[in-house]
Amino acid sequence: MGTVLRWVLFVWMAVIIWAAFYYAPAASGFQGQSSRIVFFHVPTAWVATLAFLVSCIASIRYLRSRDPKEDIRASVAGALGLTFAILATVTGSIFARIMWGSYWNWDPRETSITFLLLIYAAYFALRAAIADPERRATMSAVYAILAFVTVPFLVFVVPRIYWSLHPDTIINTQGRIKMDSRMFQVLMGSLVGFTGVFSWLYSLECRVEGIRRRRQHEVL
């Protein structure tokens, strides 16, 4: 990421942070100013999902080309995804506590993010358990793909069935509110900013891991 771009990102996110608190209005129907957490919570969940996608694509490419660089990409994206998934869960839980009084309710979105967390944790447990680098890369790539095909079922099919049987589950109202245009702008801006942060961290980590592996080979 070029120097100019990095500084643009810095200013962008600084503006977004200001805007989240002073430009956008507090949404009605929420406790006080608590709706503002949305501008940080939603993008972290988005990045967690994006990272998962990147990881899976890299996994597929690894299985086709056996290029170690793809394994680096898959594992780096996975690590970032795990971090952002944790952030998303924590910010979401805080929000749930403010809005609905309890930290956890197992509504479909909360369930989805938990699922993502479990997948990431399992992915790294698998990687830790295999010593041989090529086998580690192959097995974790296969697992990433297995996880990827289960996601549509969890994300799309479960909520449909879920709702019909649990009508009293507390509804995450984000999807239902027609957003104030300023809120929408800030949210979109935040999404762009977080994506920028992710892509910077991602490319950086890939380079670091590349150096690390190269040096390991030299030592050996």
Binding site: F115, L118, A125, L126, A129, M139, Y143, F153
Partner: peptide, 19 residues
């Protein structure tokens, strides 16, 4: 062919089986 197979089996299976 991994280490800690028993626990790993559950850890890997459960997320996939949740839906």
């Amino acid at each position: 062919r991994a280490m800690t197979r028993g626990a790993l089996f559950s850890v890997l299976s459960l997320p996939l089986l949740l839906p």
